[in-house]
Every structure is written in structure tokens, then in C-alpha cells.
């Protein structure tokens, strides 16, 4: 592929031979510039707070830019959530890759992490230099307590629709028991609870009508 070629309007689908495996039905925009991808994700990375990044991604990528439709946004989100890594950075990599290949993935990831990463590093350097300042410590006690409130709210927001089903509650309880109270290593929790949970939700022949979207 030669990214330097200007896109030929109307002829985009004629040159399908060298494209590795772009699914045929996928209407990926053909002429998105790397700079545009970078700036878009930089903006999302600079304004998204507190785990609500999915809403910002959707507003920007689907509604504002039109780079993905709702269905493909949800499919990318599904991948991002099922795989290791953070939803925000996984989404940037997946969407960047679909728009412009690996270069798109790299600029999208860089944009997503640059604002928060540089700011947290600056704060971290300042924190290390002021570790014995009583004002800094008092403020951070307040921030830590607030973080607990926020984490519990986000956990409940994501988990509340599962709390009505006994099987889900049992898996949640088993996980919390193993991690927080028995202090079993996450590797073993994932390797034991994971397969059991997937097996308990295994495909069934009479499974036709129970579908609700899991993506929050």
C-alpha cells in the first residue's frame, strides 16, 4: 500500500487487490489523514474524565467525525472490552488501525495517552518533591476518599443490570472473595473463574430470545 497516493474519488473500491483483509461490508473512510486522527484522539484524551471515555469516543468518532457507524462502534467496543488492556487505549488502537493501519493505531494511541500521561507525570514529580508537605497530604487524603466513591459508583453503574441474575451475582461474589479476601493471584482467578463463567454462559440451542446488549 502506498499511503502517499492521493485518494481517487470514486475509484476507491477498484483497487481492492492489495488490501489484506478489509471486510467487504465495512465502509471505512478512505482518506482520513493521520494528523486528523491524532488531533481527534488528543482531544478525547484531554477532555475525558473518570472512566466515562466510551461516551466521549462515541460522541467524537460516531456523531462528530462519522468515522464509524453505531454498529461498528459497538463491535470495536466489544473487542476492546473482551481483550486485555484499557477500553480507551484499546479503542484508539482498533479504530486507528481500521482508519489508517498501524500508523493510524500508533498516532491514535499517542493522542489518547499524551495529555493525561504528561499531566500525571508532572503531578507525580511534584508529589515526589512534596511528600512531607501536610497540605499536599491532606488534599490527597480527600482525593483518595473521593476516588473510592467514584470507583464504587462506576462499578455499580456497570454491574447493576447483572445484579438481578443469580448466576451473575455468584460469579461476582466468587471473584471478590478470591481476590479481596483470599488474596489469590489474578492469574489464577482469570484462569479458573474465566473458563467456568464462559462455560456457564455457553451457547444453548434454545438461546434465541434472551439477547440484550452487554455493552454499557
Amino acid at each position: 500500500m502506498s499511503p502517499s497516493l492521493p485518494p481517487a474519488p470514486g475509484a476507491a473500491h477498484a483497487a481492492d487487490a492489495p488490501v489484506a483483509e478489509a471486510p467487504a461490508a465495512y465502509a471505512v473512510p478512505q482518506d482520513v489523514r493521520l494528523w486528523d486522527i491524532f488531533v481527534t484522539f488528543l482531544f478525547i484524551g484531554a477532555i475525558s474524565f473518570g472512566g466515562g471515555v466510551v461516551a466521549y469516543l462515541r460522541a467524537s468518532l460516531v456523531l462528530k467525525k462519522g468515522w464509524l457507524d453505531e454498529e461498528h462502534f459497538l463491535s470495536a467496543l466489544e473487542i476492546a472490552q473482551a481483550l486485555p488492556g484499557l477500553n480507551a487505549t484499546n479503542m484508539s488502537i482498533i479504530v486507528g488501525d481500521r482508519l489508517r493501519g498501524i500508523a493510524g493505531a500508533i498516532v491514535a494511541f499517542t493522542g489518547m495517552t499524551l495529555p493525561g500521561g504528561s499531566m500525571v507525570l508532572a503531578l507525580g514529580v511534584a508529589y515526589a518533591a512534596n511528600a512531607h508537605n501536610p497540605y499536599v497530604n491532606a488534599a490527597l487524603v480527600g482525593v483518595g476518599a473521593a476516588a473510592v466513591g467514584m470507583l464504587s459508583a462506576v462499578t455499580l453503574q456497570i454491574g447493576h443490570k447483572q445484579l438481578g441474575q443469580m448466576l451473575n451475582v455468584a460469579i461476582i461474589a466468587a471473584t471478590v472473595l478470591m481476590v479481596s479476601f483470599l488474596h489469590i493471584s489474578l492469574v489464577w482467578v482469570l484462569l479458573t473463574v474465566g473458563p467456568v463463567a464462559v462455560f456457564l454462559f455457553r451457547p444453548r440451542k434454545d438461546d434465541a430470545g434472551t439477547g440484550e446488549g452487554e455493552t454499557s
Binding site: A82, V148, T175, V176, S180, V198, F199
Partner: peptide
């Protein structure tokens, strides 16, 4: 169909891990 099983099975596991994350911060905070 296993794709949906994967999602449905992992969803409560992730909520459990998030709850444990909250607990681990709460223990000091």
C-alpha cells in the same frame, strides 16, 4: 455463538474485579 458466551461470562467477572479494586483502594483511603 461463543463470542456472546465470552462476553456474558466475562461481564460479571469484570464487575467482581472492579469491586475488588474499589475494596483495595478503600482499605487505605
Amino acid at each position: 455463538p461463543w463470542r456472546r458466551s465470552l462476553q456474558q461470562g466475562l461481564a460479571p467477572l469484570v464487575v467482581g474485579l472492579m469491586a475488588s479494586g474499589t475494596i483495595s483502594i478503600a482499605r487505605t483511603a
